[in-house]
C-alpha cells in the first residue's frame, strides 16, 4: 500500500479517494451514512444492557446473575408446569374414563396412546424394544399371545405389580428345572421336547419317541400348560401349540428350558408411575394390536 499524494480525487467519478493505493488501484472514499454508525454504537449499548439484565460474565465459582434473575432451569420448570396444566383436564378425563369410553372417543384415545407411548419409551423400551417388538425372553407386546392375559385389566395388573418382581401382589409362577433338579433324565427331556414341538406342527425326527414324550408331558407339564398344551394364563404358562415362542422353537432351546427352567422377571411399576400413566401405558400396549 502506498499513499498517492497527487490523486486526491478520482477523475472519472469525481469521488474523493482515501489516499490508499494498492498496485496502482486507488480506493475511492464513498462515505457511509452517518446513521449507520449510530446504529453500530446503539448495538454496543444494547449489548451492555444484556450484560446487566441477563446472566453473562463468568466469575471464579459462579457468574453474574443479571438483574432480571432469569435462569434457564427455572424457565424449563415453568414450561413443564405449564405443560402439565394444559394436559391436566385431559389427564383427569383419562383417569375417569372406562376402556370402551376411551375407545369411542378419538381425542381421548389419541391422548392416551401418546401418553402411553412416551411412558413406554422411557420405561419399557429397554427390555421390550422401542416398538414393543420384544426380544428373546422379553415378549412381543404387539402380537396376540399373552402370558398373563391380554385384557386391559390384565395388562394393567401386570404393569402395576410386575412378574416375579418381589412386590407382594406380583404375578408369579415357576417353570421347574426338570433336568438340573433331577426330576427328569436327559432322554426323557428330549422326548418331551420332541412332543412339544409336535404340538404346534413343527418337524420332529422320525425316530423320536413321541408317546413317551406325551406321557411325561401329561404327568409333569399338563398341570400348568394344560392337557392340550394350550397354556393357562392365570399361571402365566405359555400356549405351546401356537406359532409364538418366547425363547425360540429350536429343539435345543426347548430342551434347555425344560432342563433349567424359565422365569423371566418384570418390575412392578406401582409407586413409580401414577395410576393414570399406568392406564395410558396399558391402553398403548392394548392398542398395539394384540389387545383382547
Amino acid at each position: 500500500m502506498a499513499l498517492d499524494p497527487h490523486h486526491d480525487r478520482d477523475s472519472v467519478t469525481g469521488t474523493a479517494t482515501t489516499g490508499h493505493v494498492w498496485d496502482g488501484i486507488r480506493e475511492l472514499n464513498t462515505p457511509l451514512p452517518r446513521w449507520w454508525l449510530w446504529i453500530f454504537y446503539a448495538t454496543i449499548v444494547w449489548s451492555i444492557g444484556y450484560w446487566v439484565v441477563y446472566p453473562s460474565w463468568p466469575l471464579v465459582s459462579s457468574f453474574t446473575q443479571g438483574v432480571f434473575g432469569w435462569h434457564s432451569r427455572e424457565a424449563l420448570v415453568r414450561d413443564l408446569a405449564e405443560l402439565k396444566a394444559v394436559r391436566g383436564p385431559m389427564m383427569d378425563k383419562l383417569a375417569a374414563a372406562s376402556l370402551p369410553e376411551i375407545m369411542s372417543d378419538p381425542m381421548l384415545l389419541d391422548f392416551a396412546r401418546a401418553q402411553g407411548r412416551t411412558s413406554f419409551g422411557d420405561n419399557c423400551a429397554p427390555c421390550h424394544g422401542p416398538g414393543a417388538a420384544g426380544n428373546k425372553g422379553y415378549p412381543n407386546l404387539a402380537d396376540d399371545d399373552w402370558l398373563w392375559g391380554g385384557k386391559i385389566e390384565d395388562i394393567a395388573t401386570t404393569v402395576r405389580y410386575g412378574i416375579r418382581s418381589g412386590d407382594p401382589k406380583t404375578r408369579i409362577s415357576l417353570m421347574p428345572a426338570f433336568g438340573r433338579d433331577n426330576m427328569l433324565t436327559r432322554p426323557q427331556i428330549e422326548n418331551v421336547a420332541d412332543y412339544v414341538r409336535s404340538l404346534s406342527g413343527l418337524s420332529v425326527n422320525a425316530k423320536a419317541n413321541l408317546s413317551d414324550g406325551k406321557a411325561i408331558f401329561q404327568q409333569q407339564c399338563a398341570t400348568c400348560h394344560g392337557d392340550d398344551g394350550k397354556g393357562k394364563r392365570d399361571l402365566g404358562a405359555p400356549d405351546l401349540t401356537d406359532a409364538i415362542w418366547l425363547y425360540g422353537s429350536d429343539r435345543a432351546v426347548i430342551i434347555e428350558g425344560v432342563w433349567g427352567g424359565r422365569g423371566g422377571t418384570m418390575p412392578a411399576w406401582v409407586g413409580r408411575l401414577d395410576d393414570t400413566t399406568i392406564k395410558a401405558l396399558s391402553i398403548y400396549v392394548h392398542t398395539l394390536g394384540g389387545g383382547q
Binding site: 499513499l3 499524494p5 474523493a16 482515501t18 472514499n29 462515505p31 451514512p33 452517518r34
Partner: peptide, 20 residues
C-alpha cells in the same frame, strides 16, 4: 508496503456523511 508518507495534497474527506 512502502513507507507511510504524509499526503501533501490529500483532501481529508469524511468517512461518514450526514444525511442531506
Amino acid at each position: 508496503m512502502t513507507a507511510h508518507q504524509p499526503p501533501e495534497f490529500f483532501e481529508e474527506a469524511p468517512l461518514y456523511e450526514p444525511r442531506r
